[in-house]
Design a protein around this nucleic acid. Structure first.
Length: 164
DNA sequence: GCCAACGTTGGC
DNA sequence: GCCAACGTTGGC
C-alpha cells in the first residue's frame, strides 16, 4: 500500500504586460520557468513546498480587472534562478552576482487548463466561500501564495476550465 | 495617477 | 536591534 501523495495548491501572480497566461500557453510545450520571484517568503514556498503535480492558479495583477485566467501544474521543482546573475536580466541581483551564487529559486510550470470564464477579483469578492482567500486580503502582496483545496476547486467551478 | 501596505536598507 | 527612509506592489 502506498500513501497518497499530498498535493498542494498555489496561486501565482503575473503582470500580463510582462508575461500572461496566454504567453505560457504559447511557450514550447506550454512550459516555462517562473523566474524573477524576489521575495523570501515566496521563494521559500517554491524551494521547500512546491512538488511535481502541484496545481497553480495563474492570476493577472496590476490591470483594470485582475482575475485568475488559467491553471498550470508544477513540472520541475525548485532550482536556482540564474537570471539573478545575468546583468541583462530585469531580475538581476547585484548582491547575488557578487557572491557568485543565486539565492533565488524558480520552478517550471506547464499550462493545463484555460478558464473559459476568467474568475475576476470582483467575482471572488462577491463569493462568501472565497472570503478568506489570501489574494483578497488587504495588502496581500505575496506573488506566490498557498491556496486551500476548497478554494482551488471553487475557482475552477466558477471558471469553466477547458483542458489544453 | 494615487496611495496604503509591506519589505528592505542602512544609520545609529 | 531599532526604526526612519525608501522602493515596490497592486488595487482602486
Amino acid at each position: 500500500m502506498s500513501k497518497k501523495p499530498i498535493k498542494n495548491f498555489w496561486l501565482m501572480k503575473t503582470e500580463p504586460d510582462v508575461f500572461s497566461f496566454e504567453d505560457l500557453v504559447k511557450a514550447p510545450n506550454s512550459i516555462t520557468h517562473w523566474e524573477g520571484v524576489r521575495n523570501y517568503q515566496a521563494r521559500n514556498f517554491m524551494r521547500d513546498l512546491f512538488k511535481i503535480g502541484d496545481q497553480v492558479l495563474i492570476y493577472h495583477s496590476n490591470i483594470d480587472e485582475p482575475a485568475v485566467f488559467g491553471v498550470a501544474s508544477v513540472v520541475r521543482e525548485g532550482y536556482p534562478d540564474s537570471f539573478a546573475l545575468d546583468p541583462k536580466s530585469n531580475y538581476f541581483d547585484e548582491q547575488a552576482k557578487k557572491k557568485g551564487q543565486s539565492p533565488w529559486i524558480m520552478v517550471d510550470v506547464k499550462a493545463t487548463h484555460r478558464l473559459k470564464n476568467p474568475v475576476t477579483r470582483e467575482r471572488l469578492k462577491n463569493e462568501p466561500r472565497a472570503k478568506s482567500m489570501m489574494v483578497l486580503q488587504r495588502g496581500a502582496r505575496l506573488s506566490v501564495q498557498p491556496v486551500s483545496e476548497e478554494h482551488f476547486y471553487l475557482v475552477l467551478d466558477l471558471g469553466s476550465p477547458q483542458k489544453l
